[in-house]
């Protein structure tokens, strides 16, 4: 896993649920590229169209609450998100993000201190997020334990393939 990630950000509010991230009417889609075309439509139809490649989504508390749909992570990855930072995450979303290697960073209070379009740098080893536009620094929770093992392997699929001796 890359230990530093840099990108331009978009900032969302609290309790952004999975229906806003990926509306139910698209759940039958299975092609990741198609899934990627509808990211955050429930918040604003234009977010996906204008999202900077390699950008970072910043949100408030309980990001990804609601359903267990993995599409919510797939759509963010294929919109071009390189990481997601939030004050806190809903449990299933967090697991799905780790499994598919969309790095989820818990950074309490950050959503109140950064703005759309800022450039952010995440240092996963140090547990620090820096707003390169304003110079402000934030302490983030370090990823450890099982989630770190899975992210280090590049996601649950390579992790399991290795564990099961498939590769």
């Amino acid at each position: 896993m890359k230990t530093t990630i840099e990108g331009k950000i978009i900032v969302l509010g609290n309790n952004i649920d999975t229906d806003q991230i990926y509306p139910g009417r698209y759940l039958e889609l299975t092609d990741p590229v198609e899934i990627g075309k509808h990211c955050l439509e429930g918040v604003d139809k234009n977010i996906g169209k204008n999202f900077p490649k390699g950008g970072i989504v910043v949100a408030g508390t309980n990001y990804g609450c609601g359903s267990s749909r993995e599409h919510a992570v797939i759509t963010m990855l294929h919109m071009g998100a390189s990481a997601v930072i939030a004050d806190s995450f809903a449990r299933i979303f967090y697991r799905n993000a780790v499994n598919l290697s969309l790095v989820p960073v818990i950074c309490k209070g950050i959503s109140q201190h950064v703005k759309d379009g800022d450039d952010l740098k995440i240092d996963l080893d140090k547990g620090v997020v820096k707003d390169l536009t304003t110079g402000e620094e934030f302490k983030s929770e370090k990823i450890t334990g099982q989630p770190l093992k899975i992210l280090d392997a590049g996601g649950i699929k390579p992790y399991m393939r290795h564990k099961l001796g498939v590769d």
């Binding site: 609601g66 359903s67 267990s68 299933i92 697991r95 499994n99 598919l100 649950i156 399991m160 099961l164």
Partner: peptide, 30 residues
């Protein structure tokens, strides 16, 4: 189950919890 409302089964004294699609695939494997 691949559904967030799997908490329902606490009604029966079970440990019920939801997961995403790929977590479920790891269960089907192991």
């Amino acid at each position: 189950a691949t559904d967030s409302h799997t908490t329902t089964h606490g009604a029966f004294g079970a440990f019920g919890t939801g997961v995403g699609a790929t977590d479920m695939a790891t269960i089907l494997l192991t």
